[in-house]
């Protein structure tokens, strides 16, 4: 509890050692593979999914993200799962949401991290196995000053 919230120091020598190593990034290929894994053989079709994100992101640490799927959310016709993917963070997966008829509406909102300007994809799998998709292009601004 009393641990100081850590500060960051890049410019000074202490940070130098860590600069040599950096995590691998996801690639568009890795993202496509993850999306195919989610779709499970179905071919994602554009439509029915709305992905609401700002086009210009002030800070990539918390990007408001809302997914809405056009579905009656009845026992006979509903969204089973929604997944979010990106192509340039270290990992392609962002989150998966499990939904069902009890949701009433297929509406989910969260905040995500984006390390760079890139596209984000949302996939929704319906109970009939069909998969629908939407994507958003985002510009993530860089901090002007690197802080210590």
């Amino acid at each position: 509890m009393d641990l100081p919230t850590a500060s960051r120091r890049l410019v000074l020598g202490g940070g130098l050692a860590l600069l040599a190593i950096s995590p691998a990034r996801a690639t568009p290929e890795a993202m496509r593979a993850a999306m195919q894994g989610f779709a499970g053989g179905a071919e994602p079709r554009p439509g029915r999914v709305r992905l609401e994100m700002p086009t210009l992101v002030e800070n990539g640490n918390a990007v408001p993200t809302t997914v809405i799927v056009d579905s009656p959310m009845t026992a006979a016709d509903h969204v089973v799962e929604i997944a979010l993917f990106n192509e340039r963070n270290p990992l392609p997966d962002i989150a998966r949401f499990t939904l069902g008829p009890r949701c009433g509406q297929a509406w989910v909102s969260t905040r995500i991290r984006l390390g760079d300007t890139q596209s984000v994809h949302a996939l929704a799998r319906m109970n009939d196995g069909s998969v629908w998709s939407a994507s958003a292009e985002l510009i993530v601004t860089l901090p002007a000053c690197i802080e210590g």
Partner: peptide
């Protein structure tokens, strides 16, 4: 104070 790693979201390797 202990130094902690910089960059914002994830490492930005080129920078």
């Amino acid at each position: 104070r202990r130094a902690r790693r910089p960059a914002a979201v994830f490492a930005r390797p080129p920078v």
